[in-house]
Structure formats: C-alpha cells, structure tokens
C-alpha cells in the first residue's frame, strides 16, 4: 500500500494518483516507487531525478523513515511518500 502525501508542485502526488492510497506490490521500497511511477508517469517529475529518488523526498515504511531503496516490504506494509518538508 502506498500513500502519496502532499500536493507538492503541480502535478501533485495525490491529485495525480487521484486517491490517497494505492495498492502496489513490490519487494522493496525502490520497487514500489518504480511501480508507482510506472502506473502514474506524471509522478516521475516529483519523485525521481536521473532515475534515482529525489533528494529530500521522504519515505516511511509503517511510520519509520528510511533512505534505503533496498529496504524490503511485504504486502502488509504501508509505504508513505512525502515531498520535501521543512518547518517547525
């Protein structure tokens, strides 16, 4: 399950996906993102840079931040994707 958050620059993640949650199968974080972009090609501009996940894009697996694209995921995991964030 992938939850793209935010409406960061147009086209935004949620609007492009048209939903708050997408069910996607993939063995790793990287595979899930690749599949997501394949399904919604317009997300590529927001998520990828030179084929890699953009710097500052934040990904959590079940609420735990990760910067490891090889981190394994199963069908029970929730991957959340956030655009670059700052604040306080």
């Amino acid at each position: 399950m992938v939850r793209p958050y935010g409406r960061w620059i147009m086209p935004n993640l949620r609007k492009v996906a048209g939903t708050k949650e997408v069910a996607i199968t993939g063995a790793s974080v990287g595979a899930v993102v690749t599949e997501l972009v394949k399904r919604y090609p317009a997300l590529a501009a927001n998520l990828l840079l030179d084929g890699q996940i953009r710097p500052h894009v934040i990904i959590t697996v079940n609420g735990h931040s990760t910067d490891d694209v090889d981190a394994p995921v199963t069908e029970f995991d929730v991957v959340s994707i956030f655009p670059p964030l700052a604040g306080g």
Partner: peptide
C-alpha cells in the same frame, strides 16, 4: 527544495 518550494508552498 526546502526553502524554494516546501516552505513557500505549504508553510510550516
């Protein structure tokens, strides 16, 4: 992207 997009776009 933090100072040019994230903060102006959505604030804190």
């Amino acid at each position: 992207p933090l100072t040019s997009q994230a903060l102006p776009e959505f604030g804190t």
